[in-house]
Nucleic acid binder design. Structure first.
Lengths: 158, 158
DNA sequence: CATGTTCGACAACCAGGTTTACGATTCCGA
DNA sequence: TCGGAATCGTAAACCTGGTTGTCGAACATG
């Protein structure tokens, strides 16, 4: 029950946010490993999500994820080695190399979307749908709108 | 406003949890850097918190943080180099080396506690105290109780 | 006293991030 | 049109934080 206690210390909130996040992510990847994707790490789901169905470039990916283009490029390297992404030359610009999901990448992203949805339903079964929805609304209200570059195309696109 | 929408996709929740956490942590360290602690990284606060006022050992610290004793030892090395922690021999057991906070470490931890509290009040001013308290209650309800080893002494002790 | 366990340390390695640099390509304005 | 500026991908060097494996020193116990 929510009690308005002014004595609640502030450090509980970040700790619980991190614990909630990691609980969700760890549960997801435990199930994902049993569905043919044992190599998918937590960060990879966000990367695949940011690549999107239309593909992107390493520089643009870095902007979406809020990291340097070099860091994005190295993560793309690993996901290419794992078979989740592929690089193709851009016929319109010889400097650019399009990063696209492979079939395996699409499969992994689709499965994680299904699992995330199931995990959210589990939270909703415990807390009630209204409480989960309220938590999402509240978190959205206190999060900078451009945090994960949710405004740029690619996120959840498709 | 919280609307009970069964069509809300599950992947929004982890993204918002992570964004909320990072928003809080980034805000904290931006202010902490201006108060004489520019070298404190996000993970350091949790380590100092886990060391506690009574001190601990590298092995025990690893258990509290859920990482290997080697990883805990390396992090202690860095915090010793930064002046936040110190190692002293345990007179009762020549194998053990007690890890204790220095004055600088106590100062950093005290300041972050004050800042976290202020940040929580900022959230409460935006959302209302009841909503923040409800979020904490809900997150606690869906988080494994031993996640950060909150049960062991050291966390928030003192 | 011999054996097993624990502690701290070291080495090697991996993932993910940074800054700096650079060649190749494209864009754009004088 | 052409030359400088900007962009793209890549590489190198480095840092942080994590892993596993090993090992000597120091306890604990039969």
């Amino acid at each position: 029950m929510a009690t308005a206690d002014p004595e609640r210390p502030g450090f509980l909130l970040p700790l619980l946010l991190l614990a909630g996040f990691r609980t969700l992510i760890d549960d997801l990847h435990a199930e994902l490993a049993g569905q043919g994707h044992p190599d998918l790490r937590p960060v990879h789901g966000f990367v695949l999500q940011a690549v999107g169905v239309d593909g992107t470039t390493a520089s643009e990916l870095g902007q979406r994820l809020g990291v340097s283009k070099q860091a994005a490029g190295k993560t793309v390297d690993r996901l290419v080695a794992l078979g989740y992404l592929e690089r193709v030359d851009d016929p319109a610009d010889a400097r650019r190399k399009l990063v696209r999901m492979t079939e395996k990448g699409v499969d992994g992203l689709r499965r994680s979307a299904v699992l995330f949805d199931a995990l959210r339903k589990r939270w909703a079964a415990t807390l009630g749908e209204e409480r989960v929805a309220a938590m999402e609304d509240d978190l959205r209200a206190v999060t900078p709108p451009n945090f994960f570059r949710l405004d740029v195309p690619g996120w959840f696109g498709g």
